[in-house]
Structure formats: structure tokens, C-alpha cells
Nucleic acid binder design. Structure first.
Lengths: 209, 209
DNA sequence: GCCATACGTTAACGCTCATTAACGTTCTCG
DNA sequence: CGAGAACGTTAATGAGCGTTAACGTATGGC
């Protein structure tokens, strides 16, 4: 296979529009005719580029997961050993992604179950590795944090960072650098608080029914 | 109309199963036959209880939004004036909901666009009021926080608290009181960090392209 | 006893939609 | 030129699915 970074080809155009539409209306809520229309061709013309609608979603989700994992691994490799700095770098990388590719962030945790068994397992494996990478970084930065708590905290912070699609239309809050800085502070503050068992007067668990 | 809290009637049974299935496979991914089968009747028998599939989703989403807003308002009304305590109470209420009704939490921010215009506007209005209620509470607890930042922080913390569906199958992390306490600490830590502009060495916004 | 209501059933109907068939049109390169 | 890849088009096909029709059955009050 050849990995080209030459120009935005038709194929990439399709993927971008499909991501946007899937994020807006859900995988089952978008027809192939719509995707085709979004790139100027119509309907079955897409089948010159993809074997089917499923394949588009699969390529999107695998691509997202790989990009996230690769970015995380690169930052780990570039780390100078300071756990705090590594954690900050991971957070920045994720924020960058969440702010820049909101549609993909939305798909990432929403349409996973629409994949064929084999693709779904691949994506889940990539996601798991990415989570593990974070859990290790968090535990190095906050050694007092128990492993299950660290894992839950990582998932929760992902939820926090991935909230960018809820910040309203692009331009209002998304896009200005202050939002990235705010998200960074929120994430760091959450992790720091997780490590402090003695949080003072906070009552803790709410009463279940 | 009569509001009965007598027993789990067939209608409520349908709503519960529909919520579970919609959360698992998405609104468009579930057929009416499946919903019927889940409650022991089959297919079009559902139309004795609901005018259509849309109506089930609408009732679910409106119900969730109303319950969240009512719970929030109740806590505001019961507040003794301590902003910190009110914020903690709001967080506990939301955590209680997120841990107990994970399917509904999933639907709440995922299938909103599948509603008819009128229902969607209603749900959005309820959601907006709930957010406003939180924003006010946050700003009272942290007066230094600017309004847009407070709003973004609230959305982000919702994303954090609503991460419970990602915590794996019920029983592992969900359900034990420690998880509720952890989520509470994470949320409080995030808000506290949002208010501190001077967070030391944290670099801030990542570089967008 | 009997009619009305509540609650189901199975068998169409009709529409949407992914996929395939059959048929052009450039564009390139030998 | 002229063959053949690359890329599209419109028309059919066929399955899935929400909804409606037409048809039971128990139940409960008059």
C-alpha cells in the first residue's frame, strides 16, 4: 500500500464529508446518496472508492484510533522523564484533536457498535492501548492513585475533553485558544483532585435509591 | 390525564426496554419488533401504547430532561445559601442519575436530533435551563470565573460525569460507592482548577494548525 | 347477557435505502 | 489512433422496517 500525503483526493473528501454527516445524524441516519451529494457525485458513485458504507465508517474509526494512539506514543517517546510534563503533553494532544476534529470525536464513542466484528475488535484494541498509555502516565504523575481509580479518572477526563461538540457551533467557544487552555486546566484539576483522598467536607457518594 | 405511580405498568416496561435498546444500538438501529419482543409482545402491539416509535424516544428524552431539571431546582430551593454546598449537591444529584440510569444518560446527548422539531425544541429548552442553573451555581461558588468559561466548564464537567457508560459493564466500576465519590472529587477538582488562572507551569492552549 | 374497552395477534402496504447492473465519458499512454 | 483504466451516471433489485388493517379475546360494569 502507498501512503500518500500529496493532495486532498476524492477519497479523502468523501471520508471528511461522511464523518461530518455521520456525526450529525448517525450512521443509520445518513444515506449514501447524501454522502455522494456532499462531494458532488451522486449515490452509487461512491462504490468506485469504497466497497460499501460500512467500510467508510470502519476506515474513519480505525484512522481516529490510530492517530490518537500514535500521537500518545510519540509524546511518551519524546518525554524527558518528567511525569507532570508528559501528562500535560498528552492532555494537549488530546485537546488539539478534540478541538480540531469534533466530528471524529463524536463518532469515536458513538458509532463503534455499527462496525463489523473484526473492525470493532481492532478499534477497541487501539482504544484500550491508548487508555493504558494514559493510565500509566497518570499513575506516574500521581503514585498515590490506585489503578482502578486511575482508570476511571482517565475515562472521565476523556469525557471531559471530548465535550467539545457540546460547546455550541464552532466559533463561539471552540477555536479560540482560551478554550484549549481552560480544558487543560479542567483536566489537570480533575486528576489532581482524584489523588487527594482527603478532600475536606466533600460528602462523597450520593445515596442510591 | 392521570399520573399513577402505582406499579410498573406495561407502558413503563416498554419505555425501560426501549431506552436500553436505543442506547445499545441507536434509535435507527432498533426495530419495533425488537422492542416488542423485549417486553413479551410482538411488533405492532406497541401501537396500543404509543402512537409511534418516535413518541417513545420523545417521552424518554423529555422525561430525562425534566427529571434532571426538577432535581436541580429542588436542590437549589433546598440550598441554605452556601454556594459550595449547593454545587456539591448538584454534582451528587447528577452522579446519582448517571450511575443509576446509564442508558438514559447515553440517549440524552446522542439521539436528540432524531426528535420531531417540536419535541427537540422542548428538550433543548429544558437542557438549557439545567445548564443555566449549574452555571449560576458555579459562578456563585467561583466568582472569579468569567461567564463563558463557567459555561464551558459546566459542559465539560457534564461530559466527565456522563462518562459512566464508558466505565465498562455494570459491577466492575459502576455500582460501588467509591466510584461516585471519585467522580465527585474529579468534578470539584475541575471546577476549582478552572477558577485558578495562574496554574503555574501548565503551558495552556495547544497549537492548532 | 352484552356491549365497550383494553390489549394482542398476524398479514399486508409502502417507503427507504444499500447494493448491483448496464451503460457512458474522459484521459493517458503505447 | 485506440485500448483500457479511472470515474460517473441512471435504472433496477431486494431486503428491512415503520405503520396500518383486519381480526381475536378477556374483562368489567350496566
Amino acid at each position: 500500500m502507498t501512503t500518500r500525503t500529496d493532495a486532498p483526493t476524492r477519497r479523502e473528501q468523501i471520508l471528511r464529508e461522511a464523518a461530518r454527516l455521520f456525526a450529525e445524524r448517525g450512521f443509520h441516519g445518513v444515506g449514501v446518496d447524501e454522502i455522494g451529494a456532499a462531494v458532488g457525485i451522486s449515490g452509487p458513485g461512491l462504490y468506485r472508492h469504497f466497497p460499501g458504507k460500512d467500510a467508510m465508517l470502519a476506515e474513519l474509526l480505525v484512522g481516529i484510533s490510530e492517530r490518537l494512539l500514535d500521537g500518545g506514543r510519540r509524546r511518551v517517546a519524546e518525554s524527558d522523564g518528567d511525569p507532570e510534563a508528559l501528562l500535560s503533553a498528552l492532555i494537549d494532544g488530546h485537546i488539539d484533536f478534540a478541538l480540531h476534529d469534533r466530528a471524529l470525536i463524536t463518532l469515536h464513542d458513538r458509532e463503534l457498535d455499527r462496525l463489523r466484528e473484526t473492525d470493532r475488535k481492532l478499534v477497541r484494541q487501539l482504544q484500550r492501548q491508548y487508555v493504558e498509555l494514559w493510565v500509566e502516565a497518570v499513575r506516574r504523575a500521581y503514585p498515590s492513585l490506585a489503578e482502578p481509580d486511575a482508570r476511571a479518572a482517565v475515562h472521565a477526563v476523556f469525557g471531559l475533553l471530548n465535550s467539545t461538540p457540546h460547546l455550541g457551533p464552532a466559533g463561539t467557544l471552540v477555536g479560540r485558544p482560551a478554550t484549549g487552555a481552560l480544558l487543560h486546566r479542567l483536566a489537570r484539576g480533575a486528576f489532581a483532585a482524584a489523588a487527594h483522598e482527603d478532600s475536606g467536607d466533600a460528602p462523597g457518594a450520593p445515596a442510591a435509591d
